[in-house]
Simulated assay, not measured.
Amino acid sequence: MTEATKIEKTNTLAKDLFLANLGLAGKVFEQSQDLLKQTEAKLKETEGKVKDTYSKRNELFDSLIARGEKVQSSTVSKFEESKTELTGKIESSKSQVVTKFNDTKAQAIAKFEELKSESNAAVEGQMKTLRESFDKVKGKVSGSKTEATEATAEVSAS
């Protein structure tokens, strides 16, 4: 092998190495472009999922707010119904107690008046009996006075 063939082979080898490196650089560039495209696609897909999740989060949050408002409204409504029902029962019980009290009061007053009348009648009867007894005693005392005066006059005359 001659020196010129060696140099030519070396030049060819160097040229082939240069072209291989250039081909490698092109291949790396193409693969990096594909990888970049895949990464961008995955990034867009992930962004879509994030936006979808964010959107669903807002929908879930809004639905929870709506549910909370319904629960609050229902609770307030039931509380008001219970309050109204309880107030009605209290008023009814109060009315019954007042009626019962007034009936008992009326009965007590009537019984008092009855006892008062009976007591007054008994006192009047006792007073009448005492007056009659007093009149009898008075009559006897008056009669005795007349008799005593007559007896004294007789004794004085004799």
Rank of each mutant, 00 (worst) to 15 (best):
5 T>L: 00
5 T>P: 00
6 K>R: 15
7 I>M: 02
9 K>D: 02
12 T>F: 03
13 L>R: 01
14 A>I: 08
18 F>G: 04
18 F>N: 02
19 L>R: 01
19 L>V: 03
21 N>V: 03
21 N>P: 00
22 L>R: 10
23 G>Q: 14
25 A>G: 03
25 A>E: 02
26 G>H: 04
29 F>I: 04
30 E>Y: 10
32 S>N: 11
34 D>M: 06
35 L>E: 02
35 L>S: 06
38 Q>D: 13
43 L>C: 08
43 L>A: 09
44 K>T: 13
48 G>C: 05
50 V>K: 11
51 K>Y: 04
51 K>G: 05
53 T>G: 08
54 Y>S: 14
54 Y>C: 10
57 R>D: 15
60 L>A: 15
61 F>Q: 04
63 S>F: 12
64 L>Y: 12
65 I>N: 10
67 R>K: 13
69 E>C: 05
71 V>E: 08
71 V>I: 12
76 V>M: 06
78 K>D: 07
79 F>P: 01
81 E>W: 04
82 S>K: 15
82 S>P: 01
84 T>I: 11
86 L>S: 13
87 T>Y: 06
88 G>N: 10
89 K>V: 04
89 K>C: 03
89 K>L: 08
90 I>W: 04
93 S>A: 11
93 S>C: 10
95 S>D: 12
97 V>K: 03
97 V>Q: 03
98 V>P: 01
99 T>I: 05
102 N>M: 02
102 N>P: 00
104 T>M: 15
104 T>S: 14
105 K>T: 10
106 A>S: 07
110 A>P: 01
111 K>M: 15
115 L>D: 15
116 K>A: 11
117 S>I: 04
117 S>L: 05
117 S>G: 04
117 S>Y: 02
122 A>W: 08
122 A>D: 05
124 E>I: 05
124 E>A: 10
124 E>T: 06
126 Q>F: 06
127 M>K: 14
128 K>D: 15
128 K>A: 14
130 L>C: 15
132 E>K: 13
135 D>T: 07
135 D>G: 06
135 D>R: 11
135 D>S: 15
138 K>T: 08
139 G>P: 02
141 V>G: 00
142 S>D: 13
142 S>K: 11
143 G>E: 06
146 T>P: 00
146 T>V: 07
147 E>G: 10
150 E>R: 01
152 T>A: 02
153 A>D: 06
153 A>S: 13
153 A>Y: 05
154 E>T: 10
155 V>F: 14
156 S>E: 03
156 S>F: 02
157 A>K: 12
